[in-house]
Simulated scan of single mutants.
Amino acid sequence: MVMTPPPRDPARRKQDVLDRLGRETDIWVATADADGLPCLVPLWFVWHEESVWLWTRLTNPTGRNLRDGGRARLAFGDTLDVVLIDGRAEVFGAAEAPAAAVRAFLGKTGWDPREEGPPYACFRVRPHSVRAWHGESELKGRHLMRDGVWTV
């Protein structure tokens, strides 16, 4: 017999999301172009100053979609520990990327995209909503952030 653990309280869920944002290396980035063609890729990221920071080239679909559409849905790959983040994206050229965000990204990943060619761009995704749940028992209360404000 499989036992379902009791639902986590909202504060525990928020802390689990923050822990995961600090621990994980890859995050799934979903975007769409102006015609609605979806694109889904995993990218390295860092959680820094209440935003997800990631790097990709403006010449690929994800970079163009983030630049042109300004929106993204981010997720982790484990279906038993769901975290969905919807946010607005802001683009920085490699030379304009905030130094503190660059240091945080380099510190976490060990990679400096500014040294690669062709040039990469830096993207800050500011969360607008965050949802997290473990199975059906946690669907109620899964909204941890709405309109850019933590609900817990």
Score class of each variant (00 low, 15 high):
residue 30 A to R: 03
residue 124 R to G: 05
residue 9 D to R: 14
residue 1 M to I: 13
residue 37 L to V: 15
residue 102 V to C: 08
residue 67 R to V: 10
residue 109 T to G: 02
residue 113 P to D: 02
residue 88 R to T: 12
residue 114 R to M: 13
residue 118 P to Q: 00
residue 53 W to F: 00
residue 110 G to E: 00
residue 13 R to F: 08
residue 151 T to Y: 10
residue 69 G to V: 05
residue 27 I to N: 05
residue 101 A to E: 01
residue 135 G to H: 05
residue 66 L to M: 05
residue 10 P to N: 09
residue 80 L to E: 11
residue 54 L to E: 01
residue 59 T to P: 06
residue 11 A to V: 11
residue 2 V to T: 14
residue 30 A to Y: 01
residue 72 A to C: 05
residue 7 P to G: 12
residue 88 R to Y: 05
residue 73 R to Q: 09
residue 6 P to N: 12
residue 71 R to S: 06
residue 139 L to G: 12
residue 87 G to K: 06
residue 145 M to C: 14
residue 138 E to Q: 12
residue 138 E to H: 14
residue 13 R to P: 07
residue 77 G to S: 12
residue 148 G to H: 15
residue 40 L to H: 00
residue 83 V to K: 13
residue 9 D to E: 08
residue 94 A to W: 07
residue 42 P to L: 02
residue 53 W to S: 05
residue 135 G to Q: 03
residue 31 T to F: 00
residue 93 G to V: 04
residue 55 W to T: 00
residue 31 T to W: 03
residue 42 P to R: 04
residue 108 K to W: 03
residue 77 G to A: 04
residue 1 M to N: 09
residue 50 E to Y: 01
residue 9 D to P: 11
residue 52 V to W: 02
residue 120 Y to Q: 11
residue 77 G to V: 07
residue 41 V to H: 04
residue 63 G to T: 00
residue 107 G to V: 15
residue 148 G to P: 09
residue 44 W to A: 07
residue 132 A to K: 08
residue 103 R to Q: 07
residue 122 C to T: 06
residue 106 L to Q: 03
residue 59 T to A: 12
residue 34 A to W: 01
residue 42 P to D: 00
residue 76 F to E: 07
residue 36 G to L: 05
residue 84 L to D: 09
residue 147 D to W: 13
residue 15 Q to H: 15
residue 53 W to R: 01
residue 137 S to E: 06
residue 123 F to L: 06
residue 131 R to N: 08
residue 85 I to D: 12
residue 14 K to T: 08
residue 33 D to W: 00
residue 123 F to Q: 03
residue 54 L to A: 01
residue 149 V to Y: 15
residue 20 R to K: 14
residue 143 H to P: 15
residue 123 F to R: 02
residue 149 V to A: 13
residue 69 G to Q: 11
residue 140 K to V: 10
residue 116 E to F: 13
residue 88 R to E: 13
residue 1 M to S: 15
residue 3 M to C: 15
residue 48 H to D: 02
residue 31 T to N: 05
residue 84 L to P: 12
residue 147 D to L: 15
residue 85 I to A: 06
residue 36 G to K: 12
residue 145 M to F: 06
residue 23 R to E: 06
residue 98 P to E: 01
residue 152 V to I: 14
residue 124 R to Y: 06
residue 22 G to Y: 06
residue 68 D to K: 13
residue 63 G to R: 00
residue 137 S to F: 07
residue 95 A to M: 11
residue 121 A to G: 04
residue 65 N to S: 02
residue 97 A to N: 09
residue 27 I to V: 05
residue 76 F to N: 09
residue 103 R to E: 10
residue 151 T to D: 15
residue 146 R to D: 15
residue 56 T to K: 07
residue 133 W to L: 10
residue 49 E to V: 08
residue 3 M to N: 13
residue 124 R to I: 05
residue 88 R to V: 09
residue 68 D to A: 14
residue 74 L to E: 02
residue 134 H to N: 11
residue 43 L to V: 00
residue 147 D to I: 15
residue 1 M to W: 13
residue 54 L to Q: 03
residue 2 V to I: 15
residue 1 M to Y: 13
residue 103 R to S: 15
residue 85 I to Q: 09
residue 104 A to L: 04
residue 83 V to H: 10
residue 30 A to P: 03
residue 4 T to M: 10
residue 22 G to F: 06
residue 151 T to L: 12
residue 117 G to W: 10
residue 112 D to V: 10
residue 127 P to H: 04
residue 13 R to W: 00
residue 81 D to S: 08
residue 133 W to F: 11
